[in-house]
Simulated scan of single mutants.
Amino acid sequence: MAFFFLRVLAVLPLVALAGCATPPPPASAPVAAAPRPLMVDPSDYSSIKADDVLFRAIGLVGTPYRWGGNTPAAGFDCSGLIGFVYRDAAGIALPRTTAELIAMHAPSVDRAALRSGDLVFFSTQGGGQVSHAGIYVGEGRFVHAPSTGGTVRLDYLDKPYWQKAYLDAKRVIQPERLAQTAP
């Protein structure tokens, strides 16, 4: 987990400086025609809200599990954690239960296309009914409040238990198309 944070922190200054790295055109350069707008592919877009959700969720790792809990002081169950994080970090009010979360009108996401902030759903009791959910944070990991006596934690989707129980994923935060100029 520390490697993940260090990697994120190492990349942020580079991204900020990248826009400043281009030298200005020479004074004698001819004036070019106005650049034409170009739409950015949403798969290249990193949502600030999704990043806020990611960091808020990771910041709650270690908070005690409590059935029905939905605040850091009271503890969390899985849907209480999701609701708190989205409300606190992104200003988005979500349904309270896992059944309501998986039924909400948000696009399903293929497991191979998961992005930070996506919700992941599991059938931990068998029968194909949703019974657990978490927040995908990247690199095959998700944050969730797993069970009584436990704490909010990071887990890998590729662990056999979670692979077997995996049902679906939903993208709550939709990427925006940003206008940029063509080179």
Rank of each mutant, 00 (worst) to 15 (best):
14 L>I: 14
15 V>G: 10
15 V>L: 15
15 V>A: 11
17 L>Y: 03
18 A>D: 08
19 G>E: 11
20 C>Y: 10
20 C>A: 15
21 A>L: 15
23 P>F: 09
24 P>I: 07
27 A>R: 12
28 S>Y: 12
28 S>P: 04
29 A>D: 11
29 A>Q: 12
30 P>A: 08
33 A>N: 12
33 A>T: 12
34 A>W: 12
36 R>E: 15
37 P>F: 08
38 L>V: 14
39 M>V: 14
40 V>C: 07
43 S>L: 09
45 Y>Q: 11
45 Y>F: 15
45 Y>T: 14
46 S>G: 14
46 S>V: 15
46 S>L: 15
47 S>V: 10
49 K>N: 12
51 D>S: 13
53 V>A: 05
53 V>R: 00
56 R>I: 05
56 R>G: 05
57 A>Q: 03
58 I>C: 02
60 L>H: 05
60 L>N: 06
61 V>C: 11
61 V>K: 05
62 G>H: 07
62 G>Q: 07
63 T>Q: 06
64 P>L: 06
65 Y>A: 02
66 R>N: 12
66 R>Q: 13
67 W>Q: 07
68 G>W: 14
70 N>H: 13
70 N>C: 13
71 T>Y: 08
71 T>I: 11
72 P>R: 09
72 P>A: 09
75 G>V: 05
77 D>W: 06
78 C>V: 01
80 G>M: 06
83 G>A: 14
84 F>P: 01
85 V>S: 03
85 V>A: 02
88 D>A: 12
89 A>E: 02
89 A>M: 06
90 A>S: 08
91 G>Y: 05
91 G>D: 06
93 A>R: 15
93 A>Y: 07
95 P>S: 08
96 R>P: 05
98 T>N: 15
100 E>G: 13
102 I>T: 02
102 I>S: 02
103 A>Q: 10
104 M>V: 10
104 M>T: 11
104 M>P: 05
106 A>Q: 06
106 A>E: 07
107 P>W: 03
107 P>T: 09
110 D>L: 13
110 D>Y: 09
111 R>P: 01
112 A>S: 14
113 A>K: 14
113 A>L: 15
114 L>S: 01
114 L>T: 00
115 R>V: 05
115 R>S: 04
115 R>P: 00
116 S>Y: 04
119 L>R: 00
119 L>W: 01
120 V>I: 06
120 V>Q: 03
121 F>S: 04
122 F>E: 01
124 T>L: 10
125 Q>Y: 10
129 Q>I: 15
130 V>R: 02
130 V>M: 06
131 S>V: 11
132 H>A: 03
133 A>K: 03
134 G>V: 00
134 G>I: 02
135 I>E: 01
135 I>N: 02
138 G>Q: 00
138 G>I: 01
138 G>P: 02
139 E>A: 14
141 R>Y: 03
141 R>G: 00
142 F>W: 04
146 P>F: 05
148 T>M: 13
148 T>W: 10
148 T>C: 06
150 G>T: 12
150 G>N: 10
151 T>L: 07
152 V>N: 00
153 R>V: 10
153 R>W: 04
153 R>M: 11
153 R>G: 04
153 R>S: 08
154 L>K: 02
155 D>N: 08
156 Y>F: 13
